[in-house]
């Protein structure tokens, strides 16, 4: 099936009294993708998500979700959107089943048996055994699952997640990655804002980089990436002033960044090129103690942010 643009943002400008939080932001998101929304603190990520969800009104610009303008009638668009805020938005004094029941009722689900729908959602998110438990007594990871179940109970086409991995332990983060991939398989489009790039790499297909309210990069990542470059990180026993000059002479090497004991660079993806690079460094007397592939998403992000500073 051919994918279409489920989100279209054109020239979006959002202002706080003395700050332009979003400055002429424009992009499109393909249906069925998982887009990572990254950027430094205060870049405008949460504001952008809230604007797409129709929770904030921008000064100017246009947002179209599933072919309908958000700003004209946000209430209609809400039927197609699930939104998970960074604090999950759950009533601590209610049980998990009450939370899900309320979510299903308030979304006016037209199903024969809401109880079965809730049970099915709970089983998918592996919280079926927690249904009678009070939300306030659950761990952060479980609360997050309840919040996701609540956000997707009406089977939205687009799911917006604001910092979903924050505060989760490594195990819970891994489960989250699996969960998001499963949601994608179910046909949902996801837009995920996060600081934790290593996790985003596991599941995202695209990356949006925001800086100071401006969109500075929109690129494909991970499996869908068609780049022929790899990012390498080299650790040295002692800093070398000559290393940049040495590296630039080696074929296939680009974007060299040396900083104290660390050197980051791009290299073509041929394994023989890596072997050649390492031998050249050792032969030149450079004290290499570590030579590894860096997180390309992180590297791409850092390059984008630094290029625009």
């Amino acid at each position: 099936m051919e994918s279409f643009d489920i989100v279209e943002v054109n020239n979006l400008v959002f202002e706080y009294p003395k700050l332009r939080a979003l400055n002429n932001v424009s992009f499109r998101i393909k249906q069925g993708s998982i887009t990572a929304l990254v950027g430094p603190n205060g870049a405008g990520k949460t504001t952008l998500l809230r604007c797409i969800a129709g929770l904030e009104f921008p000064l100017s610009g246009q947002i179209i979700v599933n072919g309908q303008p958000v700003l004209k009638d946000p209430r209609t668009i809400h039927r197609h959107i699930g939104y998970l805020s960074d604090n999950f938005g759950l009533s601590n004094s209610l049980s998990v089943s009450q939370c899900l029941m309320y979510a299903a009722w308030s979304q006016k689900l037209k199903v024969a048996n809401i109880k079965d729908t809730i049970l099915a959602a709970a089983e998918k998110l592996q919280i079926a055994d927690r249904l009678p438990q009070l939300v306030g007594t659950l761990s952060r990871g479980l609360r997050q699952r309840v919040a996701i179940a609540q956000a997707i109970i009406h089977n939205p086409k687009l799911l917006l997640l604001d910092e979903p991995a924050s505060g989760l332990d490594p195990d819970a983060r891994h489960s989250l990655s699996e969960l998001l991939c499963w949601l994608k398989e179910e046909g949902m489009t996801l837009l995920v804002s996060s600081h934790i790039l290593s996790e985003l790499k596991e599941y995202s297909t695209d990356m949006l980089v925001l800086k100071q309210g401006c969109l500075i990069q929109h690129s494909a990542t991970g499996g869908s990436s068609n780049t022929s470059l790899v990012f390498l990180e080299i650790k040295l026993a002692q800093a070398s002033a000559a290393i940049e000059a040495i590296l630039e002479k080696i074929a296939g090497v680009s974007k060299v960044e040396a900083e104290g004991f660390f050197v980051r660079l791009s290299l073509d993806e041929q394994l023989t090129s890596r072997h050649h690079l390492l031998s050249q460094l050792v032969n030149s007397g450079i004290a290499v103690i570590s030579f590894s592939e860096a997180n390309d998403m992180q590297q791409s992000y850092l390059t984008a942010v630094r290029d625009n500073s």
């Binding site: 929770l55 805020s85 604090n87 308030s106």
Partner: peptide, 13 residues
């Protein structure tokens, strides 16, 4: 306080 308001704003009620 419980940050549930955004979710309610997005409901169909």
């Amino acid at each position: 306080r419980e940050k549930t308001w955004d979710w309610q704003r997005m409901s169909a009620m």
